[in-house]
Design a protein around this nucleic acid. Structure first.
Ligand SMILES: NC(=O)c1ccc[n+]([C@@H]2O[C@H](COP(=O)([O-])OP(=O)(O)OC[C@H]3O[C@@H](n4cnc5c(N)ncnc54)[C@H](O)[C@@H]3O)[C@@H](O)[C@H]2O)c1
Ligand SMILES: NC(=O)c1ccc[n+]([C@@H]2O[C@H](COP(=O)([O-])OP(=O)(O)OC[C@H]3O[C@@H](n4cnc5c(N)ncnc54)[C@H](O)[C@@H]3O)[C@@H](O)[C@H]2O)c1
Lengths: 213, 213
DNA sequence: ATGTCTTTGTGAACGCGTGCACAAAGATGG
DNA sequence: CCATCTTTGTGCACGCGTTCACAAAGACAT
């Protein structure tokens, strides 16, 4: 039976082993003292807690450059997400297959959502169309939205929105980049914002997100 | 002179006004008591601190579906980032313009980086090519990398990596989605992971990032 | 069975970010 | 020039997540 110790996992993830053990403990006592965690069992338990054991139908709205790229992204399926439908407002696209899935027209948005029991929607339309599309998705029953358009969406309580903004990612890099240059800028900034720990990379607790476009 | 109070800004951003004031105080005392902050001046100061007042040349490596979408993204330029070059390994693409910029071959990667003084690189190649491409970028002088390939990159000290992973964004949504269903799952999970505050949306301090693909 | 050795699970201390509350600053009006 | 009112800047306290440290659990060898 292949096992891992919290120490090994912590080293690989670049975090503290005690923290890792405490986190796991919230899911239950799945470890064996003196041995470690059964890898297969642990992966299953975490997957289940994260909601990865069930199939999540997803719709993508706005099949332009970005939407098409997302539709083609294989990493979707490997984590339990299934592209249930592609939706676009352009009549010329209707019926045309992208990544093997025929694009459907926005007119049928509500029906598509309901027929497929979709609760997660991805918005990749131009900024101006994002809020209206969002409203229709929510009205049709979608309660989680991944937004790629550079707009802050307004949604009712109970609906989750996550915004992916490439510009902000680049800004964070530029911010650190500027510091590497070692210039003496006026203000003092708390060291907390300084750098990332080895092992972690990506959107973690970092940098506030307050700035207009 | 148009001004804003910390109270107004805090309400708009969905954060506490005291926190906002304290954050601003790290940049210096730019406010006027009894009045608020001079909007234009404040924006400039924050932009400067974030490194947005200077021009950041960026290269994108891997001009496939995603890379092309990124090259077309207008939000780039509006924040001070300039696409200095597009690079791909496919000889058939060399010279072909994408978003008005001719694609160049990976053979010239080092020269392109150096000629343009690029310090920020975007990787949108298949997963297998990401690490080798990363190594070449770093060797050529790039010290900040935005990685879209589903791989954890290994880099020397002093190089920053941010990974954008659509799957993880969807997993976070699915996790919360599962909870809304209100099912009684076995383990107890700390309420901290529960929900997002009104006003914030997107990659903030949330959810640990430990899980294999 | 008993002892030893490894690793978990967790109580307790620590540190840090967040929020409260208020004194000081400065604008504004009389 | 003084009084008043608004809003900043910040000391301080609270709360929460992280980390330390260790007792208990259990595997494994003798
Ligand atoms: N967040 C990021 O990092 C990032 C990166 C690139 C692009 N973007 C954004 O993603 C969005 C899409 O970018 P793109 O390059 O694919 O643009 P695009 O113009 O290529 O595609 C937009 C698509 O949306 C469709 N559309 C327009 N209105 C619609 C509506 N009301 N309902 C349904 N579909 C509609 C159009 O027909 C088009 O196919 C833009 O808002 C862009 O700013 C974000
Ligand atoms: N993070 C996300 O949310 C997300 C979303 C979609 C895709 N992706 C990932 O982004 C990457 C690109 O996706 P895509 O759909 O554009 O794939 P794609 O196959 O359309 O494009 C890949 C491009 O990279 C080029 N390439 C291959 N090897 C190269 C090398 N060594 N040097 C330079 N260029 C090279 C290819 O010629 C091709 O043009 C993949 O790794 C994919 O998994 C990530």
């Amino acid at each position: 039976m292949p096992t891992v110790s919290s120490e090994e996992l912590a080293a690989a993830a670049g975090v503290n082993s005690a923290k890792l053990r405490k986190d796991f403990s919230y899911l239950g006592s799945y470890g064996t003292r003196g041995v470690g965690y059964d890898v297969e069992y642990l992966v299953y338990q975490i997957s289940r807690e994260l909601g990865l054991t069930q199939d999540w139908p997803v719709v993508i709205v706005g099949i332009g450059n970005l939407g098409a790229a997302l539709a083609n992204y294989g990493g979707f399926a490997s984590r339990g997400f299934r592209v249930a439908a592609l939706i676009d407002a352009d009549p010329a696209m209707a019926g045309k297959p992208v990544a093997g899935i025929p694009v459907q027209h926005t007119d049928d948005l509500e029906k598509i959502i309901q027929d497929n029991g979709v609760s997660i929607g991805v918005i990749a339309t131009p900024a101006g169309a994002a809020q209206p599309v969002c409203d229709r998705l929510v009205a049709a029953g979608v309660t989680s939205i991944l937004n790629f358009a550079p707009t802050v969406l307004t949604v009712p309580d109970g609906v989750d929105v996550r915004k992916v903004d490439l510009s902000i990612e680049l800004q964070i890099l530029a911010f650190h980049e500027q510091r590497k240059a070692g210039e003496d800028h006026g203000g003092t900034v708390p060291p907390a914002a300084a750098h990332q720990e080895p092992g972690e990379q990506g959107p973690d607790g970092d940098v506030p997100a307050v700035m207009p476009a």
